[in-house]
Structure formats: C-alpha cells, structure tokens
Design a protein around this nucleic acid. Structure first.
Lengths: 249, 249
DNA sequence: CTTGCATTCAAGAAATCTGTTGAATACTAT
DNA sequence: ATAGTATTCAACAGATTTCTTGAATGCAAG
C-alpha cells in the first residue's frame, strides 16, 4: 500500500490494528488451526499434522495468529503449546460464520451441497438434543479423537472417534437414534460419521454445534476422563441421565 | 498459495468462504468504508471522498466488500448506493473490535494514548447517558455531518457537525455537561469535539458508542429531520425528555 | 559439554493484493 | 442522438503474502 492516495483523513491508521486481526482470520489454514485450537491446546507439531501443514508453515501461521492476539503460547519442557487467547475468539469466529452463511449464499450453497450428499437431514440443535436425551431417545457420540474428547466433551457423550467407528459401531444400540457431534459446524467428522452409521442402518443425526459452540452458549462441558475404552458400556441410559442432570440447572 | 502442502485434510476448502469474508475486513480502508456505511447508505463518490480514497480505488474496495457479501448495492438513476447488507455486519465489527481491544494491548495502548491526548476522561456508556439525560444534566450533541444525522440519530440529540462547532458552540448551555457522540468508538469526530469544547471551558464528555452500536443494542433511533438549523433551540430540556420517553419503553 | 528434539528464523520463488491511470460502460438530461 | 455524470473495468508497478527449504535457536537428557 502506498501513501494513502491524497489527503489521508485523520483516524485512518486507527483501523490498522483491527484490520490486522481480521487479516489473521483471512486464510483457510489459519481458520483450520483455530478450529483445532478451539478444541483444546496443542503443540505445534500436533497442529501441523492435524491441519495437514508443513511444520515451518504451521509455525508461521501460528505466529501470525499470535501477533494478532488470537492465540497464546505456553512452554512445557521441550515443546510449545498454543491455545486460544480468549473465549471471545470463538465468539468472533461464530459471528464470522453466521455472516458468511447468510451472505455468501452462492458459496454456501456449494458447501451445503457438498455436505448434503453426506447428510440429507437437517442437523438438530442443542435444545432439541437435551429434550431427546432426557427422554432417552438418543445415543450421543463424540467422534473426535480421544485427546480432544478428554479436553472437554458434552455431558453423557460416548467417545467414538471416527477411526474406530468401524470396529465399535456394532456396540451402539439400534433402537435409539444416534446423534453425532465433532469440532464445529464445519468440521466434517460428524458428517462422515452420520453417513457411515446410516449405511449400517442406524438412524443417525448430526448435532448442529461442536464443543466450542456448546461451551460458548454457556452449556456445561465435562472434562477429562478419556472414557473407558470398554466397548461394553451401558449405552445411553446412564449417559443420558448425566446429560440431563447437567442441563437441568 | 500453492497446492496445500501435502495431504490436504478434507474439509479445508470449507474454510475458504469464511476466510474470504475475513479478508474483506482485513484492510484499514475497507474498515473505514464499513464504518461510514454503518451510518447509512452512500454513493460511491461520497464514500470515496469521506474515506479519502481515489474513486476507482474506493470502487474496488467496495466491490471486494460486496463479493464478500458484507455490503449490497442499490441503483438510483445515475448513481449506485452502497449499504451494509445485514445488521449482523455491525455485530461482526463489534466482535472484531472487542477482541482487538482486549488482545492487542500493545497497539491498543498506542491508539489510546494517541486519543487520550485529546480526551483524558473515560467515555460514558449508554446506560449512564440515559440516566443523566433523564435528570437533565447533560446536552447531547451529534457531531456527524447533517446527512448522517438525518439517516438516524439518538433521540433528543442536537446535530452540531464538527465543522460548525466553532460557530455554534456558544449556543450550548454552559451549566450542563455536553456529551458528544459520532460514528463509533473509533471515530475521531467526537474526540475532536470534546477537546474543542473543553478548550472553550465546557464540561465535555464522549459517549462510548456511536449510532451503529446504539442501534445494535436495540436502543431507539430517531430518523429523518435533519433538525432545524435554528441556532436557538430549547437546549436539552425537550430533547432530554424525548430521549427519556424513547428509552422508557 | 554434547546430542536430540521441537520450534523458530531466514531467504527466495510464486502468487496475490493495492493503488494509480486511462478507457469503457450505464444511465440521465438535453 | 449527444453530451455529461457516475461507476466500473483493465492493466501495470510496487508491495505483501505464502510456502518451501535449510539453518539457527532453546531446552532437556545423557
């Protein structure tokens, strides 16, 4: 950018810091990194791998995010963990998503179509989920990797990472519908999970929100406990009761 | 950006549209244009002039905003009027501002310092304004140009554009404190107005919000009526009553 | 101190973005 | 039609961004 055209109206530089933050959000890779970080803190290496980026490249993207104040770092021994600097970041991302959904109908249609192939049905919202859980109508599964589940998950959810879905799907009760959720509205894990479950004859639905959105709504999140890998779990009954108890307050 | 490094994790392109919207916000000039548009619709020419941009340059920035779905256009005869496409845009800008304020303390300090020279006192919030207006303690002035005032202003505000402040300041009551507002938290008009009024011996304060923020809070806005240019107006009394009435609902 | 590991820095090529200029388009008024 | 106005388009130079590669840094373990 050259010297601003003619008479620079005063108070233009004021916007520079804000523009910098917006710019930091302005790259698909960085949005992907932020979505991952919204699940919990991670090392550079883990982020690079899960985002499918080269190491140095991921590092540079992360530093850009840090310069913009969107993420913060913590050193632990040899490695450096990145995390969202503030839960307002999730709010900003949600605002961005809402607006892009409304206004970019052209692109949004394409995205939707691309996903609708996997999931023809509307996702259900958090309110409806709680109602159905209360009635014991659904089994709630978290299809993210176990580590992310450990860092926070919906109360009463079973952790069934997509990778293990093939092996463990048969353990799900067939009577109840299965509701799957993952990292967020634009994470494809749950789309994929729902598609696979349907192919196996399950009644499967997607939860609209991911964990970050759920948390941002002020709804309760259960931490820790990567869940016993025990394939045989009282499926749904106890879990549903826990979810309801947590939501009743 | 080349082909994404190695194995493109699925669902990366999904973020592209969102990144595009964020990018559109990622330039100081475009943020300035959006701030102007938040006051009301405008022609390209008016926008270019007020933002201090070349005509073609402004046009291109505006088209970028339109491609991102942030603004929309309307043709009227010879000219084209741009407007915000959705009030969610103001919400997004506010979210951006909040986050940048919190996290970019380094830059924020500089900005603040730059402004604190003009305004040493904290701005007052909308709640406090309503209270003081109710008690008839303050005169509320809108220091934006008359056209913007006409497109929407706080109930009971007097329009005293910065350009006319010199001539008309003497007409303000000296007993009451003067509260000035303008386009938003990072518009310098009100800073400047407050500084000038103080130099003249007034007790002057800045309102934290501008009209867009006020509106976004769901507070009432009076439209039309560029206000009689009559220098002699029952200053504050009737205005205050109107503001209070409007806010009471 | 040396080694190994995680991360960052540095440099360079390719792509993208910006602002300017001058021409082209779309509409109004004469 | 013709002239005039408002806006957009096209093209270009300069700046910035992005990703890759390879080296440098900081820390922990031996």
């Amino acid at each position: 950018m050259k010297a601003v055209s003619s008479s620079a109206p005063p108070g233009r530089e004021i916007f520079a810091p804000f523009a910098m933050v917006a710019r930091a959000l302005g790259h698909p890779c960085r949005l992907g990194l932020l979505q991952l970080l919204a699940q919990g803190e991670r090392s550079v290496e883990a982020l690079a791998e899960q985002a499918g980026l080269g190491l140095a490249n991921a590092s540079q993207h992360l530093q850009q995010l840090r310069r913009a104040g969107l993420v913060a770092t913590r050193r632990q021994g040899n490695r450096i963990f990145y995390r969202l600097s503030d839960r307002a970041v999730v709010a900003l991302l949600s605002a961005l998503r809402r607006l892009a959904e409304r206004n970019l109908s052209e692109v949004a249609r394409l995205v939707e179509r691309h996903f609708k192939v996997l999931d023809q049905a509307e996702p259900i919202g958090p309110v409806e989920l709680v109602q159905r859980m209360k009635k014991g109508l659904v089994t709630l599964i978290d299809v993210r990797p176990a580590e992310e589940f450990a860092q926070g998950h919906l109360p009463g959810a079973l952790n069934l990472p997509l990778a293990e879905l093939g092996r463990r799907a048969r353990l799900l009760p067939r009577r109840r519908a299965v509701v799957a959720y993952c990292r967020g509205p634009y994470c494809m894990l749950s789309y994929e999970a729902v598609a696979r479950l349907r192919r196996r004859g399950f009644t499967a639905l997607r939860l609209e929100d991911g964990v970050p959105e759920w948390r941002a709504r002020g709804l309760p999140v259960e931490r820790g406990a990567p869940q016993a890998l025990a394939p045989q779990r009282r499926k749904g009954g106890a879990a549903a009761r826990r979810l309801c108890a947590a939501n009743r307050r």
